[in-house]
Computed example of a mutant assay.
Amino acid sequence: MRLHYLQHVPFENPGSILQWARENGHVLTNTQLYQHDSLPAQADFDWLVIMGGPMNIYEEAIYPWLAAEKTFIRAAIDAGKVVIGLCLGGQLIADVIGGKVTRNPYKEIGWFPVSLTEAARLSPLFSFFPPQPVVFQWHGDTFSVLPAEAVCIAASDACKHQAFVYKNRVFGFQYHLENTPSIIAGLIENCRAEMIADKYVQTPEELLAHPEYIEKSNKWMELFLTQLEKMDREGLL
């Protein structure tokens, strides 16, 4: 399987997703959008992973490559690819399928629980999650409105749409299961100015104090990807 990922800043790479892909012998390619790399042809990859980043989806005047990226994501969805979006990546997916991305009532930075729907937990893709997993958040915007075909599968007190599934093959996550200690350290180093004390904003020390949360999150991502690959291979998506 050929996995391509879109990266928006040097300090937010796919983390544990890269490890999973390498361990399973998958071909990895990437587009570093902040370096103005060219996007590949749709025929050159099977899965698309879209990473997070500190920019917002509507800042095309500052980041002109966002326009081409949105067109590319829409084409991948239309081509029937498996598409996974994380934080900004999930917001970009929501935008191109007809949803709306706006400022969330609260900025979320840190480790917080989300509640998965019963339907999600009955799915083999998410059945191994606990009812309220503690996950890593770093966002101010969110996909506040989803189109009818997109099914919300997770929510929290701070953010009503934490994850969604679209047409069984497209997944948007507001939170991060892929982050490693080095990615979290990079976020703190490069985005510390966003960490203004608030109800759902933790301190740098709190973000770095939970290696057990990172381990659990990475394991959940591994199980999700493994099951997704199996279902994709067997034509069950």
Rank of each mutant, 00 (worst) to 15 (best):
G15E: 00
S115C: 10
A79N: 06
G235D: 00
N190A: 13
Y106M: 07
E215V: 11
L225P: 08
P105T: 03
G98T: 06
P54H: 10
F143T: 08
N104A: 02
E222N: 14
A158C: 05
E149M: 08
I214E: 00
V9F: 09
K219Y: 07
W138L: 02
R22I: 11
D95Q: 12
E234R: 10
K199E: 00
F164W: 13
I97N: 04
A120D: 06
A43D: 15
Y5G: 01
V49G: 01
C191W: 03
N30W: 09
V170D: 11
H210Y: 04
G98N: 07
N218M: 07
V9T: 05
Y63T: 00
A197D: 01
L28Y: 03
A148Q: 13
P54M: 11
T71L: 14
T142V: 10
T117R: 04
G99M: 01
A94D: 10
N218K: 12
N104T: 04
D46T: 04
V9H: 05
L125P: 05
A163M: 13
A148P: 13
L86W: 12
H4F: 01
L92Y: 03
P131C: 04
L146D: 11
L18C: 11
W47H: 00
V151H: 06
H161Y: 06
V101E: 01
K81V: 07
T203V: 05
A120V: 00
N56S: 14
N56C: 13
D198K: 14
L177C: 00
L116G: 02
L223F: 12
L228W: 13
M1P: 09
Y58Q: 08
N30H: 15
G110F: 03
C191I: 03
T71F: 12
G25K: 14
S156Q: 08
P10C: 06
G172D: 09
T117H: 06
F129N: 02
E12S: 08
E205P: 11
Q137R: 10
P54C: 05
V96A: 03
C152S: 15
W65L: 03
P124S: 01
Q227T: 15
Q19V: 14
G186M: 02
L146N: 07
K160W: 11
I97R: 08
A67V: 14
H139G: 00
W47V: 04
A79S: 13
R74K: 15
K107V: 11
E69V: 00
A21G: 11
N190Y: 12
V165Q: 09
N179I: 15
N190V: 11
T142L: 05
P113Q: 09
C152M: 03
E205F: 01
G186K: 08
P147R: 07
W65P: 04
A148M: 05
L228Y: 08
A197M: 06
S182H: 12
V134G: 06
P131Q: 11
Q35S: 10
P131M: 10
L223T: 15
H26K: 15
C87I: 07
L116A: 02
H139M: 03
L66W: 08
H210S: 12
M51P: 01
N190H: 15
